[in-house]
Amino acid sequence: MKNMTLKLLIWRQKDANSPGEMVPYTVENVSPHMSFLEMLDVLNEKIIKEGGDPIEFDNDCREGICGMCSLVINGIPHGTQHRTATCQLHMRHFKDGDTITIEPFRAKPFPVIKDLAVDRSAFDRIIAKGGYISVNTGSAPDANSIPISKEAADLAMDAAECIGCGACVAACPNASAALFVGAKISQYTFLPQGKPEAKRRALRMIEQMDAEGFGNCSNHGECEAVCPKEISILNIARMRREFLKAAIR
């Protein structure tokens, strides 16, 4: 595969209070082995050399696990590559001459900070309400004293894989955080350690989710489709069941 020239349309916004707009850029000599973010690095280096203001985008581990990268690429959070976070998307999936639109994750609870960087602290506030098992350091029994079936541990792990990136919210027409919250609640439903505070957890996390301004889930399924960890929408059903069990006494 040869190197490519790409046209980019990128959302530029000075800060939370300024209006934004799509700005066209051309980036040349893009190797198919580059990651998407490396392509943006190359563009930023060019912008800096030309005396411009580089594009801000959040990223950290660049190996698909920290959840800090975002971006809506050609209308899809994290782009078209299945089960792939933006930082793991590689340019070999694009063609020479393509036009690519790049926008921030858009949702009311995720205000833009600058350009493509958004504030996802709402997720931390939801976790603070119950995304844990309340156990103080030092009071744990021997790890093998509670057997947990392999199936249950695997299902808990499937839910626990969520990287908290927020793509589910960005993809949802209602900007619902149901998949994110559902995954955390589900993880603990499979584990005996999670049972004692299951009701309290479901009620408090869901209350906070609503307070942050996330919309309701109406079963579009877009969240699962874009999730880089392929977190199953079944987790939303489990969340609802937990909520019902907690709400009806």
Partner: peptide
Amino acid sequence: IDQCVAQGVPFAREYGGLL
């Protein structure tokens, strides 16, 4: 390991349910 299991860290397990 005890602490993390108590926190609900889903470590890999054998079919017998142990770590």
